[in-house]
Simulated scan of single mutants.
Amino acid sequence: MNDNELNNLIEKYKNGTCSDDEKKSLDAYLNSFQTSNLIWNEKELGKEKLVRDEIFEKIENRLAAIDRIQHKQFSKSSYIIKIAASSVLLFVLGYFVFNLIDTKKENNVAEIKWHEKTTRIGEKSTITFLDGTKITLNADSKLKYSNMSIEGKREVYLDGEAYFEVSPNKELPFIVHSGGLSTKVLGTKFNVKAFDAENEIVVSLVEGRVTINSNSNEKTLSSKQQLTYDTKTGKEKISSFNFEEVIGWKENVLVFNNVSLEKALVKIERAYGVKFELTDESIKRLRINANFENESLWTIVKVIKSATKLEYMTISDNDTVSKIIFYRKK
């Protein structure tokens, strides 16, 4: 029975012009709602009695507005209420369920708990999610993440550097927000370096595919590709990359290929938790080529001294070296 046929039968019944066959047809249609096999989901919809009472109240209010008359209080099981209910059932239920779902969403938002993990220089940390996604957080970094997916997405916010091993899930894309970039994946392995103090964000893809958004521009990376984003100019560059040079930090491997001493010491500082100082600008521009794998701090310092012909001195705090200063011998 369509809406027009139902409305015509209801009008005939109210006017007393329904035939016996029409009454039987209307009665059968109305009873079909009561014999439905639908199961009430109390967890999602609430207590059935309270919901029924609310729906009944909305039905009465709706009828009063339609007919512009004051309705009498009828029994909830009476035939006239069944007719009235069916005539506005779609409207009332639609209105009620919409508001119920909207309320549920608000409650879900309230239930979302954000967590924050911070690492100091010389420290790394690993976070494993319930879905198997694993994030290795480099030193001097901060990761903000929630205890659940939000609006069909898994999202994290990164300041610093992290290596992501994302479990595949086509229904729940994983998004990393870092500075002016958003990196979206369905399941893959990649590294993001986005320190606030630096002028670039680097996304390096180990396997799979990722989509990167910056200033409404979208780029797609394939396996073994790297995107470098200049935060000052907004310029982007896609290139290949050296795996150990970019991601070796996870396994305490530091690789420097013709890198300025200034940049090299930033990575060493994060890895070993000791501050470095260079006494003049010319020293900062010196280039080094070296590979270090699980080496001690003092081995690295001696290699730098030998390669650059510089001298160094140390500053201690409570018998612990807190700073190393490189300078030219006079």
Rank of each mutant, 00 (worst) to 15 (best):
N2S: 06
N4R: 10
N4P: 00
N4G: 03
L6C: 04
I10W: 02
E11M: 11
N15T: 09
S19K: 02
K23V: 04
S25T: 14
D27S: 12
A28L: 15
N31R: 14
Q34T: 15
N37M: 06
K43S: 15
K43H: 08
E44L: 15
E44I: 10
G46A: 00
R52D: 13
I55M: 07
R62T: 14
A65H: 11
D67S: 09
D67G: 01
D67R: 10
Q70P: 07
H71G: 03
S77C: 02
K82V: 00
S86Q: 06
S87G: 12
S87H: 04
L89H: 15
L89N: 15
L89S: 13
L90G: 10
G94W: 11
V97S: 07
N99H: 12
L100E: 13
E106W: 01
N108F: 13
V109E: 14
A110C: 06
T118C: 12
R120K: 12
I121T: 13
E123C: 04
I127P: 07
I127S: 01
K134F: 08
L137Q: 04
N138W: 01
A139Y: 00
D140P: 05
K144P: 02
Y145T: 00
N147F: 00
N147L: 02
N147V: 00
E151Y: 01
K153Y: 02
R154W: 07
R154A: 07
E155A: 05
Y157V: 11
L158P: 06
A162F: 07
L172N: 01
K184I: 05
L186F: 14
G187I: 05
F190Y: 14
D196A: 11
A197I: 14
E200H: 11
E200V: 14
I201C: 03
V203L: 11
G208T: 00
S214N: 15
S216K: 15
K219V: 14
T220V: 12
D230R: 07
K232H: 11
K237N: 10
I238K: 04
S239L: 07
F241N: 05
N242E: 15
E244H: 06
L261F: 03
E262A: 12
E262S: 14
V266Y: 11
R270V: 00
A271V: 01
V274H: 04
F276M: 13
L278T: 07
L278C: 12
E281V: 09
E281Q: 09
S282Y: 04
S282V: 08
I283A: 03
I283K: 06
I288P: 03
E295R: 03
W298M: 15
I300H: 09
V301Y: 02
K302E: 15
V303K: 08
K309I: 06
L310C: 04
E311G: 09
N318I: 03
T320I: 14
I325M: 08
